[in-house]
Design a protein around this nucleic acid. Structure first.
Length: 575
RNA sequence: CGCGGGGUGGAGCAGUUCGGCAGCUCGCCUGGCUCAUAACCAGGAGGUCGCCGGUUCAAAUCCGGCCCCCGCAACCA
């Protein structure tokens, strides 16, 4: 039965480019989005996967300034690193772009102009801001440092003290000075544009309400709570030069707030692929847009971004906001400043197996609460689950066929007569399990789906142990042995397909070089084949060999050392 | 009393809607088996279900109070 073909756009949260990504970023959006994308493609949906670097905003400007380089150089360099890291991890973006591109500036301005022309959802307000006379620049709060009125920390920001976490109100900071030049800033009025979320509140609420049961509970609750607390107008402009300039004469020296321009990137990066993509996903009420992101991003994707879309009125609304919790590292938080964690820059030069890393990470995707990355768990997972259960099943099936039947069984499903209960159970499992796994994946329940894949492999192992085809061969009962192996060979084919979204490289190698099937596991609608017993009579496999290497403790130490090596941002962006 | 999510053997989770012997996978120990990169089978150790109190024949589950972790708190993104 062919499933209904859906039109699906998948996005992973745009990583903010003031540093290199760590594993928490990978597991919290890029990886699940990629698994989902690969699954949807295999299922035959019309699907596209986009993302890109979020380059604008104060933190990049400050980071660049501290390194003494132009901000463009910083983001050029970091964008390249991000792009390479995702490629290395087999994150198969259809388009991984960046917000500094001119097309994005145009799309953002157009988006703004449509809202502006309606004259309903935007208004201006004067804000009292720090202003540096020497730089003749309004200073965002993070550009102003001074002494915290609560704890006396001398490098506190104007909005919040990093040491004692106190929120500092405008004007309270002692000895305020410009972070760029050290000058004592004045305080003066600056006009800004605001998006009136209060006015949009009812519509946002109705939309959120319609997502009950589709979104995960915590995503729905967070959105609902924000609305119940009362939405307030939010400024969408900043006194910076790095960003998308505001196409209004009065605001010509300002840029859009990064949180205004960044989500519009989802539209830009689709449009970049061609107008037909843009029309199909963003101008089509039937398209389903899935946003994958970490929990810190939930309010922005459930409130602010939909508010923008409603105010604009001309685009499809997101279908599902898939929010994840955080991954911790060996019991601590990932921290770039403290050097805790795995920094993906190191992955570029590492020979760590990407499939097994992806598999372990899938098993700890923080779907319902924060979870833990632990090196030894990675080793154990690889050795006992990926190799012991999955790899071993492939290996023993293929080896027995190779060693005793010269790689070809010479039968097909027609010859499966006189099946006993064990045979019937496994055959029935092949017919139904891929669909069950698919349902879980479509519901973005990745851990449960992966667990089912492992159980599926286990079923094959148990069947082999019960049937002992190697003993049947010894006894001379070749017909029975062939039957058993024909069923397990079909299971192997099925497993390769369902596992491919998580372990794309190894499964593809198995598919072509060992199972000896042609073509790619990316082929649309290949998922249907996973529930078929359709291997032909004359099919001949190739010589089997192990797909993955076991990780010994010494090897683990080596990988760990390599991947946790501290890096110097300065060296990465200046070379 | 700011809000939300979470707290169940070492790890990841299910069970809480609607109370009924605390379960699954991995790890650890013992034994069996062996085609395979040691899978599978049998057995075992390991838990105050965050804490305190209440309701009940019976509480992980219902009620009240509290603690801890994480995120958010709108000019950090």
């Amino acid at each position: 039965m062919p499933t209904e073909k859906e039109t699906i756009l998948i996005t992973a949260a745009l990583p903010y480019i003031n540093n290199v990504p760590h594993l928490g970023h990978i597991v919290g959006s890029h990886l699940p989005a990629d698994i989902f994308y690969r699954f949807c493609r295999a299922k035959g949906h019309d699907v596209t996967f986009i993302g890109g670097s979020d380059e604008h905003g104060t933190p990049s400007v400050i980071a660049a300034q501290e390194l003494g380089i132009p901000v463009k150089q910083l983001t050029d360099r970091l964008h390249a690193i991000h792009k390479n890291v995702y490629k290395k991890l087999n994150i198969s973006y259809t388009n991984y772009s960046r917000t500094s591109k001119s097309i994005h500036h145009e799309v953002t301005k157009d988006f703004f102009k449509v809202i502006d022309a309606k004259g309903v959802y935007l208004h201006r307000e004067e804000l009292k801001m720090y202003f540096c006379q020497r730089d003749s620049l309004f200073l965002p709060d993070r550009f102003v440092i001074g002494t915290c009125p609560t704890c006396g920390y001398t490098s506190a920001y104007a909005d919040q003290c990093e040491t004692c976490s106190t929120v500092i109100n405008p004007g309270e900071l002692i000895d305020a000075r410009c972070r760029i030049c050290g000058e004592i800033p004045t305080y003066k009025l600056s006009p800004h544009l605001f998006l009136d979320l209060e006015k949009l509140s009812k519509k946002i609420d109705a939309w959120v309400e319609s997502k009950k049961g589709i979104w995960n509970n915590h995503v729905y609750s967070i959105a609902k709570k924000w609305i119940d607390d009362g939405l307030k107008p939010r400024s969408i402009t900043r006194d910076l030069t790095w960003g998308v300039s505001v196409p209004v004469p009065e605001f010509k020296n300002k840029v859009f707030y990064v949180w205004f321009d960044a989500p519009i990137g989802y539209i830009t990066f689709t449009k970049e692929l061609g107008n037909q993509y843009y029309e199909r996903y963003w101008k089509n009420t039937k398209s389903k847009i899935f946003h994958f992101l970490g929990k810190d991003n939930i309010p922005f994707h459930t409130i602010f971004w939909p508010g923008m879309l409603i105010a604009h009125g001309g685009y499809s609304m997101p279908y599902k906001i898939v929010g994840f919790h955080y991954l911790n590292y060996e019991g601590k938080k990932f921290s770039k400043s403290k050097g805790v964690g795995v920094f993906c820059y190191n992955i570029l030069n590492s020979d760590i197996n990407i499939d097994t890393l992806r598999a372990y990470l899938t098993s700890v995707i923080p779907e319902t609460k924060d979870s833990l990355f632990q090196w030894n768990e990675y080793r154990l997972h690889t050795n006992s689950e990926v190799i012991g259960k999955i790899g071993n099943f492939f290996n023993r099936t293929l080896n027995v066929i190779w060693n005793n039947f010269n790689g070809s069984l010479g039968i097909d499903a027609e010859q499966l007569t006189n099946n006993d209960e064990l045979d019937r159970n496994l055959i029935s499992s092949i017919k139904t399990t891929p669909e069950e796994i698919g349902k879980l994946l479509f519901k973005t329940e990745f851990r449960a789906a992966y667990q089912k894949m492992l159980d599926y492999a286990r079923e094959g192992n148990v069947y082999l142990d019960r049937k002992e085809p190697w003993s049947l061969v010894k006894k001379g009962d070749l017909e029975s042995a062939k039957k058993v192996l024909y069923i397990t060979l079909n299971l192997a084919k099925s497993l390769a397909i369902v596992l491919s979204p998580i372990m794309p490289t190894g499964m593809q190698e198995l598919w072509n070089n060992q199972l000896n099937f042609s073509g790619s596991l990316d082929t649309p609608e290949i998922w249907e084949k996973a529930s078929k017993m359709d291997i032909s009579k004359g099919h001949r496999i190739h010589k089997p060999k192990p797909l993955y290497e076991k990780i010994e403790i010494e090897k683990l130490e080596e990988i760990k050392k390599e991947l946790t090596k501290p890096y110097n941002l300065n060296d990465l962006v200046k070379e």
